[in-house]
């Protein structure tokens, strides 16, 4: 039996938005530690890894580890039926094929219930090639700062953030650099990752030459995180 109650559905809504941007369905692993997910997009270019600790729920009960195959769009539709300050309860039987979701208004005068059918997810599902990629962004990190540059068909653009400076919106930028590095990525995916921005005030980009980019957003005060991994573009 799995049962978890969250006092505010906002985090779950933002989290599902941040996941649905990359994947259609995923296996959500439920254990006594909380809820986690790791899934690649259909083209195997990017990966999303999410963890929401049991502390995000009260109470959180998980008698046996479960893997729930969830169609993210469907869950998103159900979540849209809740108000932001609703209390949400998730329930699943150990051998069931349904995830029950209950939303209650804080004063208890309204309650809505949904039963979502779980799907068997074939982890080895064949990937579809993406025929077109968006434009590329090159990220260059040196001791002077962080520079994003895009070469388009008709125009070029670049943005630079300095180590001790502040971004346009006044947010601080801090850089922890071992070696300078330059990597190129498909902008399209970075745009997808920004879907997670409402979950956190700060984003951390980790880059190393010839390895995937890691983009991390922390969830709440130690409640968990969502991380995206993105394969770089390679020189031919």
């Amino acid at each position: 039996m799995f049962e978890a109650r969250m006092s505010d559905t906002t985090v779950m809504k933002r989290l599902m938005d941040a996941i649905t941007t990359l994947i259609d369905d995923g296996s959500f692993d439920i254990s006594s530690k909380g809820i986690s997910l790791q899934a690649m997009d259909s083209s195997h270019v990017a990966l999303v890894a999410m963890c929401l600790r049991n502390e995000a729920f009260d109470p959180f009960r998980c008698d046996r580890n479960l893997s729930l195959g969830i169609q993210c769009k469907q869950m998103g539709k159900i979540l849209k039926c809740s108000a932001n300050n609703d209390v949400m309860t998730l329930k699943a039987e150990d051998d069931g094929d349904v995830l029950n979701m209950v939303f209650e208004s804080p004063n208890g005068d309204r309650m809505s219930e949904f039963a979502m059918k779980l799907t068997d997810i074939d982890i080895e599902q064949s990937c579809r090639d993406l025929s077109n990629f968006g434009e590329s962004v090159t990220i260059c990190v040196t001791k002077d700062g962080l520079k994003f540059s895009v070469k388009g068909d008709s125009s070029n653009a670049s943005m630079k953030f300095s180590q001790n400076g502040a971004g346009d919106d006044g947010n601080d930028v801090s850089i922890d650099l071992n070696d300078p590095c330059t990597l190129t990525f498909a902008v399209k995916y970075l745009n997808h990752f920004t879907k997670a921005a409402p979950l956190s005030e700060r984003v951390t980009l980790s880059l190393s030459n010839d390895t995937p980019l890691v983009v991390e957003y922390k969830i709440g005060d130690g409640l968990g995180h969502i991380r995206y991994y993105l394969a770089p573009k390679m020189e031919e």
């Binding site: 690649m40 083209s43 195997h44 270019v45 990017a46 990966l47 993406l130 990629f133 590329s136 190129t184 498909a186 390895t211 995937p212 991994y229 394969a231 770089p232 573009k233 390679m234 020189e235 031919e236």
Partner: peptide, 14 residues
């Protein structure tokens, strides 16, 4: 010219 890398070449995918 650049080609899009895939995560499979960086991680062992089981």
């Amino acid at each position: 010219a650049t080609t899009q890398g895939r995560l499979d070449s960086f991680f062992k995918v089981s």
